[in-house]
Nucleic acid binder design. Structure first.
Lengths: 197, 197, 197, 197
DNA sequence: GATGAATGAGGGTTCATTCAT
DNA sequence: TATGAATGAACCCTCATTCAT
């Protein structure tokens, strides 16, 4: 008797174990046997729910991207002013629920393979594109038309740089400090007065 | 009588092949047999010039870091004004000789190992520290004292973000655009007037 | 559902193949690929049932030691007189079921590793100790108290020397001759009259 | 200008290093690079003085055998009585100059390969034969004719067993105790009265 | 649905041997 | 004579994947 929803439960278990394994052991040491052991299931089970290891990894990357997108969308729904909306995008990308050691490590591991892995590259382009669109939309009411794209690009690069540097820290990354740096840039560039906290 | 000077030649050959392999195949697929084949030598020779694979990889990372440092030092030697010196640091980090597809890929691949590889982490901290020191020294004549450190940090993060994003491009990364973005930030933040070109 | 009882079967298969390989090819040439080929399994399977090669080898040595012990214990169970018990120990160590070309070769090969392999040394000391204890117990009713230990030691050394010399013979070692030599020594030393047949 | 006697010096250096390496690292870990490093020469030099590794090993075994033979011959030359001559053979085989940890380890390592190495087997048979002949000649004046061969065989086996057991001791083997055991056997068997010391 | 036994390719590494110097 | 750079095969081990149960 097939259990209802087992598929999603197992997929999620394995994806979570993959992220944890990448953080703790590194991408290269994250074998299927270690991932499935961490998930508390057998080795063979992976191939019931994923085509192969590459499929599990791509699903993991998509999962990370979706989490990021949802963090932004949720905050956007509660935003009222243009500044609120801009901060929704920033905070969605640097919020404490995603800007974690595990998230940063896994994220970076996938990004590092983009140059040599077209599959990851494709997913990454989608995620990057969504961040870009969100930033452009949020900046349009706050910046001169010819500055919207450049500022969006710089902001996105800065956010990515903060993720990258977060990977250097053994402890949890400081999301408030990261947020403050982005605000500092936007205040200076757009002559805004967003409070750091 | 053994050949003189082979050591540096072979080490360099292998390091170059490692960088090229990481770019083309990725970190995980860069086996010693593939690296040595690309270098045009046998598998076994690697262990004459490096203790083991980890040693070759660490040497490669150090090589990348040294290149970066030299690019900055060379430009600093020719700089005359404070602005020159600031731009020497920026250009040294984003100059066309290092900001290449291979360099970016390899750099990023090593960075991705930092969370799970203490050896790489140690080297990376040294490299990061040098960039930070260079930026602080260059910014001191140009920024209010209390802004020097924050601006240095933000600039460093931005530079790293630009490297990260450069990894997304199949073609050579646009170093002039990257340079322009950093200048744009510094001009806005420090009320300078550095020309983009 | 995994097969039941495969573990013991496979372990035994591999241990037997190890002994055969050591006899035929020598310790140094007994690679895992050769051993597993001889056992009719793949190379990789060894690491399902043994931690690594050293573990397989240690298990093989323990197997040889246990066989020896059992050969003695079985005979002791049937012994009735003190002489019977002494001969049970002798025959257990020189009986035709263990005093075979394969057994002698493997035994000797492990012994040769003892000076440089603490793991084998530990197991060997246990096996040696058991023989010593068995001999002492068997000799106590047959020898003056002060002679028990010396005679046990000499007998043990003689048995080992007979194993050693058995390794020189391409054909099966002559266990009856070996047995006769030990009896001859004991008769002379203890003024007994044990029949050679 | 070729140095006089260099050949013998180098061969001896390498043979000594081989024995030391077998004792310290074991036969399997005694690679040519380690042996030559221990001898203080380069790797390549081995093939100037020996055909290949097997040749070096065989020369080492022959060297051990010759040492043993010389130890006996030297003592025999000084012997005057039949008992002296018998003890010359015993002491030659158990004397402190050969009955050392290094000698025992190397000896045993070679012996262990006899079953699978015809080359070593051939050398070993010669060495064994010499011991047998020496014992028979020494025993003839001391034992009834029909006992000479059996006693010689038992004595030889006992001596070998004492070598074998000496390999178990991390410290130097106790050659006086070994000698005492052989004397004890001979006294009992041949009703002699040889003093243990 | 789920297991883990089994495979065989490929990983990093060590090695005996060759050879230009 | 002597070196040690260089090779390529073989080592042990790990892996993703398959499949009988």
């Amino acid at each position: 008797m097939p259990k209802i929803g087992m598929e999603e439960i197992r997929r999620r278990q394995l994806i979570d174990a993959t992220i944890a394994s990448i953080h703790e052991l590194g991408f290269g040491e994250s074998s299927l046997s270690r991932i499935s052991a961490r998930a508390g299931v057998s080795t063979g089970i992976v191939h019931h729910y994923f085509e192969d290891k590459a499929d599990l990894l791509e699903a993991t990357l998509r999962h990370l991207g979706n989490n990021l997108h949802e963090a932004v969308v949720t905050r956007l729904a509660a935003a009222q002013t243009p500044i609120d909306r801009l901060m929704a995008v920033i905070d969605g990308n640097l919020g404490p629920e995603l800007f974690t050691p595990e998230g940063v490590s896994a994220w970076l591991a996938f990004w590092a393979q983009v140059p040599s892995n077209e599959r990851f590259a494709r997913v990454q382009r989608i995620i990057i594109g969504r961040l870009h669109d969100n930033l452009v939309a949020a900046l349009r009411p706050l910046a001169p038309a010819h500055e919207v794209i450049p500022v969006a690009k710089l902001t996105a690069s800065l956010i990515d740089g903060l993720w990258l540097r977060a990977a250097l820290q053994p402890a949890a990354p400081d999301c408030r400090a990261a947020r403050g740096m982005v605000i500092d840039y936007l205040n200076a560039k757009l002559k805004l007065n967003i409070a750091v906290e």
